[in-house]
Design a binder for these strands. Structure first.
Length: 464
RNA sequence: GCGCUCAUCGUCUAGCUUGGUCCAGGACACCGCCCUUUCACGGCGGCGACAGGGGUUCGAAUCCCCUUGGGCGUACCA
């Protein structure tokens, strides 16, 4: 166990999205690689917007991705006493003050500043006034250092410097007594002993003000690593209009978690020319050194390619369990006389998602085949009558093994004098209902004698 | 507007620290060929980028400056 301590700190105001999952993943990988500690903290100081449903959704998504944590989940809503105490400390030391300006006043001033073309900042009206003794509502503001600069060395972006004039006195406690994000994040990151703060790029602007709070509270400053954002195809911040952004939506669409993990980690991180990484590979190879500085565009095609890869190479046994779930979801009742592991084996090379596989597998289980109209008209015709009859007779008696069915087929070719192609495709339609399916022998073996006979008879009946 | 930041094929990226081995490598997508009982898989090949302009240098994708473009922030949200 090393002393490295990192965290993922989502705000429970919705499901876990792609971007959050990636920062969680980076933290997780680093913790596992360095044998450090990965902490999960729920940032629910905004009581209005936080929900238990969101917490559950986030936990479920992390579990699905395989991101286990060592400590937590800690809820900020249960730590208000600690924050109160820290706010009081700053107040006592004159590093924070009560501000009686109303939200409306503040809004008006902000608007006015914008109109003038000035940077909207708090004008410090209450900075040096006496605290009132009446019960007028107030917020508590942090007294920023306004001279000089604040800079820090970002692990992935390098040194970043801010002029302290940019930092106005921010609110650390709302008028309802609850603390705000920029304050609690510092208290918690410090109290939880984090050595590195790995988070989204959208937080770099918060970092200098947070550093000032670390200093005011006498805390050691952790190392910061800001990972670039994920953008949509139009280079705008990834959002719902770009498609699914929820991690669990990808499960519903039939994606494997290892595909999402692999995709997400390669978006912004690289390891030479390698593209395929298992979680174990990543724990061994991941490093903040190879994380790029620029934002990346989310590319659904590449994710799909990885998903195909993991389906192709996945363990059939495991995949068969998953396939059953998707079949059920599609309303297909799974027949017990069919070996689903074998079904998976026939479909692994031709499925893009598990949902896709479920759709392609449906014909195996159908009691009555749903024929593709065009295929039926073209291939289930009088021309095939003899071939079907011979095949039917053979199938009723031949050994139902790879060699057996192939021999049966050979007999058909010999007796009819037809080429394989002439018999194969019609047979495929008769057995599967369509023109694209796994190899004809594989299909017969998975279907079993009884179903093959039944479907061939049905085809013969259609021919009349 | 102001602040921070980023900039190699359409996209993800290697290369940039220690200029020459890069007329820039890999992957996805796309196109073609091969394999083939359908559909796929697979194999082989092709298309395709150093944002622009100045420097520095014998030599720049690599160093410096400017321009342009993008992202993020600018809340009693996180």
């Amino acid at each position: 166990m090393s002393d490295l301590r990192v965290r993922f700190a989502p705000s429970p105001t919705g499901y876990l999205h792609i971007g959050g999952a990636r920062t969680a993943l980076f933290n997780y990988l680093l913790a596992r690689k360095e044998q450090g500690t990965f902490i999960l903290r729920i940032e629910d100081t905004d009581v209005e917007r936080s929900t238990q449903e969101s917490v559950d959704a986030i936990l479920q998504a992390m579990d699905w991705l395989g991101l286990s944590y060592d400590e937590g989940p800690f809820y900020q809503s249960e730590r208000f006493d600690l924050y109160k105490q820290k706010v009081q400390q700053l107040l006592d030391e004159g590093k924070a003050y009560k501000c009686y300006c109303s939200a409306d006043e503040l809004d008006a001033k902000r608007e006015a500043a914008k109109e003038r073309g000035d940077k909207p900042q708090y004008d410090e009206t209450c900075r040096d006034i006496e605290a009132r003794s009446d019960d007028a509502p107030y917020v508590i503001r942090f007294k920023s250092q306004r001279d000089g600069v604040t800079s820090f060395k970002d692990r992935i972006k390098g040194t970043i410097t801010f002029n302290n004039q940019e930092l106005d006195d921010m609110i650390i406690q709302r008028s309802d007594g609850t603390p705000t994000y920029n304050f609690v994040v510092v208290v918690d990151d410090a109290e939880m002993g984090l050595t590195q703060v790995i988070r989204g790029d959208d937080h770099v602007n918060n970092t200098p003000r947070q550093i000032q709070i670390y200093q005011a509270l006498g805390y050691a400053i952790p190392e910061f690593a800001h990972v670039p954002m994920i953008l949509g195809a139009d280079k705008k911040r990834l959002s719902k209009r770009h498609g699914a952004t929820s991690v669990m939506a990808y499960r519903d669409m039939g994606y494997l978690p290892e595909a999402l993990v692999n995709y997400l980690v390669r978006l912004g991180w690289s390891f030479g020319d390698e593209e395929i990484f298992s979680m174990d590979d990543l724990i061994e190879k991941f490093s903040l050194d190879n994380v790029g500085k620029s934002a990346g565009v989310f590319n659904p095609e590449k994710l799909l390619w990885l998903n195909e890869h993991y389906i192709k190479t996945g363990d059939p046994q495991r995949l068969s369990d998953l396939l059953q779930e998707y079949l059920v979801k599609n309303g297909v009742s799974v027949a017990t006389d069919i070996d689903i592991v074998e079904v998976v084996k026939t479909l692994q090379d031709r499925s893009k998602t598990m949902l896709d596989m479920a759709e392609k597998a449906a014909f195996y289980f159908a009691d009555e085949l749903d024929y593709d109209e065009k295929a039926k008209n073209k291939f289930i015709t009088a021309e095939q009558k003899t071939a079907f009859e011979v095949l039917l007779a053979q199938l009723k008696s031949c050994p139902f093994t790879p060699d057996g069915v192939e021999a049966a087929f050979k007999v058909v070719l010999e007796e009819t004098g037809l080429k394989f192609g002439k018999v194969g495709q019609p047979t495929r339609v008769a057995l599967s209902g369509g023109t694209s399916a796994p190899g004809i022998f594989e299909v017969m073996l998975v279907l079993g004698r009884e179903r093959c006979v039944c479907r061939l008879e049905a085809a013969l009946q259609m021919i009349g």
